[in-house]
Structure formats: structure tokens, C-alpha cells
């Protein structure tokens, strides 16, 4: 089995959010970057588990500049066998999806994993786009994935429940909480990651149909109005008359 796991790099979950003075780009100065949690905790770990059970290869792919190689090495330390970096700034989901698809087209992966969304731009767009470029089925938000021969049984999160679906390999899947348990890379993994192959591939040109106009930070909250804990009638009155939410 050949598994592809698409990993992205995002600001750490506690990072402050700031933008360049023209408001056109995220300002990552001084920010720690991490592997997008959905990609790391669920997609990558499940791919590694399946490889351990069935044999095969896990390829971790990142679209990003050379600075992302720390994150890519972490994916190798967790268990990916080899890595590919497509050497370009991932400027949009359209751009990123096209790069992933161009690489995957000739590689005949049995299963392509992504995280359900990135925690920065929260798009949840790339998986469906990759699937369309490759003309493969797509299952979004999978919280469980098992293989029965050439067929997968997948539970996908829907509003208020799960839908259990069957689909034949190959296909594209986005991973949500539940698919696997987070793995902390051990010393041996970290050592081995240094020698695993990391291939750098040039990007293909993409026309961008969407442009950033500007980013803005929300206005600060007016401040909390404290209500006497003995007087919940007052809170109810405020919620009804002032906030008009009940």
C-alpha cells in the first residue's frame, strides 16, 4: 500500500495573530510554527498504523519553503518513510491543491490523507480540490477508517452524528478527531528521521482566482458585565432585554 499524507504548517495554537502594516499578509515574526494538528494527530498517525498493519510506504508531502523542513522532519520522526516538499509558498488552497495533485497524479497512491482543515485559514477546501483534480472519491471529516482488502469502511462526521460509508481504493480522505491517537516522536524516530529521504520538487504555475483584500483584527470586547451570583433573575433580564438572546 502506498499512502500519501499532506501536511501543512500553521502558527502554534497560542500564537498571537498579527498582520503586515498593509493588512495583506499574516505576520509570522517571532511565531512558533507547528504541524497542523489534524494532519499530525489523525491523518499521519492513521496512515502509519495502516502501514504497520499492511506494509507499504507512507509519504509525507508539504507545499512550503525550506524553513518548513523542521515540520517535515517531525512527520518522518512520527513514522513517515519518506517526504516530499514542493518548493513554494502555499499562497492559497487553490494553489496548494494543484501542487499536491500534480505530484500525486503520477505516483498511484492507494490512499491520500489530509487533515480536516488547517487551524489558520480554516478552509477545509484542499481535500475536495485534490480529489477533483485526480478524479477520485472524497470523504470529508472521517473519524474512523478501516481497510477490508481493497475497500475502506469510513465513518464521517455529519451534523449531529456519523455516516458510515464504503468506498473502494484509491480515494482522498480528510481526517477528524477520533481517527487515531496523537503520537509523540521518540528518540529513535527522531534519529531515523535525519536519514530518511526528503525530495524537493519545483511547483507548477497556477492562476489565482482569489486575492486577499485585507485582514483585520476584531475590535476589543467592551468588557464583561458582572452579575451578582445571588441574583440570576438579573442575568435573565439582561439576556432578554439588553442582549435580546432569550
Amino acid at each position: 500500500m502506498k499512502f500519501l499524507v499532506c501536511i501543512s504548517q500553521t502558527p502554534d495554537t497560542t500564537a498571537r495573530v498579527a498582520f503586515t502594516p498593509d493588512g495583506k499578509a499574516y505576520d509570522g515574526t517571532g511565531v512558533t510554527f507547528i504541524m497542523n494538528p489534524y494532519d499530525e494527530w489523525y491523518a499521519l498517525v492513521r496512515a502509519c498504523e495502516l502501514r504497520e498493519a499492511l506494509g507499504g510506504t507512507v509519504v509525507a508531502l508539504n507545499v512550503g519553503p525550506a524553513a518548513n523542513e523542521t515540520t517535515i522532519r517531525k512527520a518522518l520522526a512520527i513514522g513517515a518513510d519518506e517526504a516530499v516538499r514542493i518548493d513554494a509558498e502555499p499562497t492559497s488552497s487553490a494553489f496548494t491543491a494543484r501542487q499536491i495533485a500534480e505530484y500525486a497524479r503520477s505516483e498511484n497512491f492507494d490512499l491520500i490523507f489530509l487533515g480536516k482543515e488547517t487551524i489558520d485559514y480554516n478552509g477545509a477546501e484542499v481535500g475536495a480540490m485534490v480529489a477533483e483534480y485526480l478524479d477520485l472519491p472524497y470523504i470529508a471529516f472521517a473519524s474512523k477508517l478501516d481497510l477490508e482488502g481493497n475497500r475502506a469502511v469510513v465513518e464521517r462526521d455529519i451534523e449531529g452524528g456519523v455516516e458510515v460509508v464504503e468506498v473502494d481504493l484509491p480515494f482522498v480522505v480528510s481526517a477528524a478527531k477520533g481517527m487515531a491517537e496523537q503520537r509523540i516522536p521518540n528518540m529513535r524516530g527522531i534519529m531515523m528521521a535525519r536519514t530518511k529521504p526528503l525530495k524537493v520538487v519545483p511547483p507548477v504555475p497556477v492562476e489565482e482566482p482569489v486575492q486577499v483584500v485585507k485582514f483585520t483584527l476584531p475590535p476589543p470586547k467592551a468588557g464583561v458585565k458582572l452579575v451578582n451570583p445571588e441574583d440570576m433573575d438579573e442575568l435573565v433580564r439582561l439576556l432578554h432585554e439588553e442582549a435580546k438572546v432569550i
Partner: peptide, 13 residues
């Protein structure tokens, strides 16, 4: 965007 920490405006062309 950024999990509710900012708003983005995008132009689709």
C-alpha cells in the same frame, strides 16, 4: 480566519 481571531476579506476575480 485564525479560528475566529481575525477577519479576512477576499476578492474573487
Amino acid at each position: 480566519v485564525f479560528s475566529g481571531k481575525a477577519t479576512a476579506e477576499y476578492a474573487i476575480i
